[in-house]
Nucleic acid binder design. Structure first.
Length: 461
DNA sequence: GCCGTTTTCGGCCCGACTGTTTTCAGTCG
């Protein structure tokens, strides 16, 4: 078994959650995909003005699919097992089975035929809900963000119900904001995809190591393209045929962009571009440095190399006079040859880190081990999924010194809320997959990672 | 569409806020 790492200092392969993941068979449909299909169906049904309780059932099923510890594809052969999951009845069990078999959901496909896929994107605009989407569709056949943009420019929204000047301006600004962030993916989603693909790549004898590079490795909040660097005997020049074929056979590929000798690029089902590069071991460090970036950091680093009589590219750090390689197998030796302390990827944004490294005064990056506590936790007293005791025990297992329970008050009625009689807020699963007192799912609240300020949502190593 | 119960059918979460309208509809959490 080879290695997968987000940061060489913290190999993911040691992560128990990851270890479980890497053993799983890579499939194009999983629990998360099913949850998304169900949730989108609920959105489309709302636009279609379907029965609100039927819509709620789809949302509950989506939440159930997202949260359950049951592998739905594996369980799909037994409807009774699916129906043991809270929120999954006879109808939803059949839909889960169908999704496991075909990768799609018939109800969703039919509604998409009627309205087009653009309406799901419209819902991502702030202040845009299903009623407004339905209104725009009925009044002006607006079914996408581009069409809405044109309609706003042409003044075609004037006179529509609830479309005053403020609302139109809000939509216009919402589109501008959306377009600025479009095409990028949250780091947690990119990391999940990186782990999934890396686990698949490592199944080939001859690929020993896979490392995500780019903005994912630098810990940015969002990722554009996903860069994965692979090394091993099957990645050496002239011997990459089997590795290229293996990458190209990855089941999550939606469409192929490039298939060359050293690089395979494709889009996955979510539209994320993935670049897999096969690299010789001798150049691994240079390539890792080059593809990790950032662009500004690399430009500054190359300028420093030139001043020192070197040239730096993705293959090696080499002398300018005779072209002989000075370093390339590891990042550390490249930085050392340039008179710099090796630095964490998170620091490489050309914000003075090169000058600091030259002086030996690099700041220390906060690591998971530095987190001492968590001050935002919800429990089954409101909309969390674990009891205070379970939360405290999980925190203790992480080595935390303190936690703060921050349950909702009863003013936020949909979450149950503390201040009510014991059990009132916990006896039913509410919207958003609400509390389940005594339920089998003892995972900590999903907000934990976010509010801890970590990019890695996992609570423990 | 699910759940609990009445084993066949009724019930299913709620308030603040905003914009638009003038008492309400829609979104958000």
């Amino acid at each position: 078994m080879g290695r997968i790492e987000l940061n060489p200092a913290r190999p993911l392969a040691r992560d128990p959650a990851f270890a479980r993941y890497s053993r799983a068979e890579v499939r194009s449909v999983d629990n998360k995909t099913m949850a998304r299909l169900l949730s989108e169906t609920a959105d489309l049904l709302e636009i279609d003005n379907a029965d609100s309780f039927r819509i709620r059932s789809y949302r509950r099923a989506a939440d159930a699919a997202e949260q359950t510890t049951v592998d739905l594809v594996e369980a799909a052969g037994d409807a009774a097992r699916l129906m043991e999951i809270d929120g999954i009845g006879k109808g939803m069990a059949a839909r889960l089975q169908s999704m496991a078999r075909t990768g799609s959901l018939e109800q969703r496909d039919e509604l998409l035929k009627k309205y087009g896929g653009g309406v799901l994107e419209l819902l991502k605009l702030p202040g845009m809900g299903p009623k407004t989407v339905a209104l725009l569709w009925a009044a002006a056949k607006i079914g996408s963000i581009d069409q809405l943009w044109e309609a706003i420019g042409g003044g075609r929204l004037n006179g529509l119900p609830r479309m005053g000047a403020k609302q139109v301006e809000r939509l216009r600004k919402g589109i501008e904001d959306y377009r600025r962030s479009a095409g990028r993916f949250r780091i947690d989603r990119a990391a999940e995809e990186a782990e999934r693909i890396a686990a698949y790549l490592l199944k080939l004898d001859g690929i020993d190591r896979v490392t995500p590079a780019g903005s994912l490795r630098r810990g940015r909040e969002t990722v554009g393209d996903l860069d994965l660097l692979a090394t091993g005997p099957a990645c050496e020049p002239g011997r990459t045929e089997a590795a290229v074929a293996h990458v190209a056979a990855y089941p999550g590929i939606h469409d192929m962009i490039v298939k060359g000798e050293n690089k395979v690029s494709f889009h996955n089902g979510e539209g994320m571009q993935v670049d897999v590069r096969l690299l010789p071991t001798a150049s691994y460090g240079a390539a890792l440095q080059y593809f990790t970036g950032s662009k500004g950091h690399n430009v500054a680093l190359r300028q420093r190399a030139l001043k020192m009589g070197y040239t730096l590219n993705e293959w090696a750090l080499a002398r300018l006079d005779d072209g002989s390689a000075v370093a390339g197998a590891s990042e550390e030796e490249i930085y050392a040859a340039l008179g710099l302390t090796a630095m964490a990827p998170e620091l490489r944004e050309n914000l003075g880190e090169i000058e600091c490294a030259a002086r030996g005064e690099l700041p220390q990056v906060i690591a998971l081990e530095d987190i001492r506590g968590d001050v935002h936790m919800h429990t089954t007293a409101s909309d969390g999924r674990s009891s205070i005791r379970e939360m405290a025990e999980a925190a203790a297992a992480c080595g935390y010194e303190y936690i703060a329970i921050t349950d909702h008050s009863k003013n936020l009625a949909m979450t149950g809320g503390i201040g009510r009689e014991a059990g009132v807020g916990a006896d039913r699963g509410g919207a958003g997959g609400g509390p389940r007192a005594g339920g089998p799912d003892s995972r900590v609240h999903r907000n934990r990672g976010r509010h801890s300020g970590r990019r890695d949502a996992r609570p423990c190593r």
